[in-house]
Design a protein around this nucleic acid. Structure first.
Lengths: 347, 347
DNA sequence: CACTGGCACTCACTAGACTTGAGTGCCAAC
DNA sequence: GTTGGCACTCAAGTCTAGTGAGTGCCAGTG
């Protein structure tokens, strides 16, 4: 219990009573989506003070920017700053038993490649939370090439198939207008294998400068691979429950704006990464700087493997979301996901 | 010019004047989103009749199910049947020069794998039409395997990478708790290659029944491949412009329902395929039988390659969409896409 | 002092009454 | 068959209170 202070003017922290009131306003408003009045707060807390006292405190909280009034004769609504305080002072909640077992169950039965698992996970997340979810699988810029193979499609089209140490596989078309016979392609494939194995996408490769068919194929293939590098280094993104956006916000324009952002995967990825970099678990309202998402809160949890961040999951909802539940769910899924990929959660 | 008939009671076709009136109502309503009154119709057509006459005809059109009245004292709105007649009697419009050149431009500059092209195309479509677009790349159930390769990730994890004749590449994890050395993996890879090349996913394969490490790997790998067959035979789906849904419909519930359908890729694919099978270019309102989409019209165009349908593109908007423009755009993009993949459009 | 009850005030929201006007259906007349 | 005239309907807009949740202020009290 913080000692009551005489002049909490610029204090970064709040008076114990103010904190209680703020918390009550936030909780109530999350529940009802309505402005919260002084008497509701007085009833909801165990402060045993009259509404008038609450009002006085609320005026002060409003002055300090934690609360706002939609109009003069309405109750108070939390500002982004108010939510921020609320979230920062939230004691960690555990996820409910039902949810816990659903998550366990999911990871016990899910099968398939990492990509499939991530996609399924995004659906799970949005089903559990009723919010839109984003799952990001990190890029593989530092993965080394395990195998490179040139496959003959027809006389003029070949396919360079590359396997990386992180288990990703890429393919690139290699056109060859001049044409090459199967033997040449096989030989090129052998040379590519020798040339590329152990390198990363950012490595500089010494390509043969000869002008025969084999050398031409090798050159074409490596340049296709490296030209596409920026794209395929990029992360995979899986978005689940975008229809939830329509439920979460009123106002068509908001819905449109949010959906529009979600369509731009690059924006979504950098948003999640920014939040992750800043080492925060949640970004509220305008904190993340994306104007169209100013009505949103984004909750982020990393997925680590052997100490390295290999992905992240995010949940996007209205600022008045149930932070404790959603954060607990995000944490639980992130832990299970980490474990699923063979890591130790919390490491 | 159809001869005017005395009693057009159950006639499948309409009176020339009725047709003109219906067309005017549809056109006007698409434009304004408002019920259309008799005087507006009288003014819009060159029939030179009074509103009273138009009213009489509209009563008849309503009786026959082409028009409906939101309430007694309002204008008329087309029913699904009305739109259907309108679309069936629409003379093919050509796509505007600006659009045409945008499409040309796009396909002149687009690069990358088929998957990337299809995804980009879906974005192009929604940008051109302001509607949500769906691009479906057909499954490869009939493609034969060109190459199968087992790549060693670590002692217990391997990756089966398979290349198909249609240029698709799949990967499957192969776990091997017992462990195998690199030589065994290489040998298994050789055997898999020999075993699988030329087969399709539905072919039955004779797997070795020996119990050594190599045979075990071969068995594991083939079963992983065939178990996953139903999934990877499945089509790829690319959805563009889902934020357009929020613009196209008023009523949060409709928006949510449509988005929710779009999330279920399987449903979307079978919807598109149904429409394609029925050999229609557009499904209006309840015609496609998906209740949540009863406020939508779906325009579909096939993408063919060497006479075979290898994909399709769809556009989803409100029933009051600009059918002529959108259909022309769909046709133009479908043609260019077909040409891009080496086919002759219209073949 | 901090807290409280009391009180006047504000203002979104609701309901009802009224008006407006676009649009209809009907009908007698051309 | 077509038309102008006419009574009728009904959603939508405007106005008018009336209601009530909520506020800010203040004087009184332990």
């Amino acid at each position: 219990m913080a000692r009551r202070q005489k002049s909490p003017v610029v204090s970064g922290d709040l008076d114990a009573r103010k904190a209680t009131i703020l918390q009550a306003v936030v909780t109530e408003h999350i529940d009802t989506a309505q402005p919260v009045g002084s008497s509701a707060v007085a009833a909801a807390t165990d402060l045993d003070v009259s509404p008038a006292t609450v009002r006085a405190e609320m005026v002060s909280l409003e002055r300090e920017g934690y609360l706002a009034q939609p109009h003069t004769s309405a109750g108070r609504v939390p500002t982004d700053k108010g939510y921020r305080y609320f979230v920062d002072h939230l004691e960690r909640g555990a996820v409910g038993a039902a949810q816990q077992s659903r998550v366990r169950d999911f990871f016990a039965h899910v099968r398939g490649e990492m990509e499939d698992v991530l996609e399924q996970t995004s659906k799970l997340l949005s089903a559990l939370t009723s919010h839109t979810s984003v799952v990001v699988g990190a890029g593989h810029s530092r993965a080394t090439i395990l195998s490179a193979q040139l496959v003959n499609l027809d006389a003029h089209h070949h396919l360079l198939v590359t396997v990386f140490s992180d288990g990703t596989v890429t393919k690139h078309s290699v056109m060859d207008p001049a044409g090459a016979d199967a033997g040449d392609v096989a030989e090129a494939s052998r040379q590519l294998n020798a040339l590329l194995i152990g390198t990363t996408l950012s490595s500089r490769i010494q390509v043969p400068s000869r002008t025969d068919a084999v050398a031409r194929l090798v050159r074409e293939a490596t340049s296709a691979l490296h030209e596409a590098a920026p794209t395929i280094e990029g992360e995979q993104v899986y978005i689940g429950g975008s229809s939830r956006v329509a439920e979460s916000f009123d106002g068509v324009e908001t819905v449109r704006a949010v959906l529009s952002i979600l369509e731009q995967e690059l924006v979504v990825v950098s948003l999640i990464e920014d939040i992750l970099d800043a080492d925060v678990a949640v970004a509220i309202g305008s904190e993340h700087g994306l104007e169209p998402l100013s009505a949103c809160a984004v909750i982020v949890a990393p997925v680590t493997l052997e100490g390295e961040t290999v992905g992240a999951l995010g949940l996007l909802g209205p600022t008045r979301m149930k932070y404790r539940e959603v954060m607990a769910t995000a944490q639980a899924v992130s832990d299970e996901l980490t474990r699923h990929f063979g890591g130790e959660p919390g490491a």
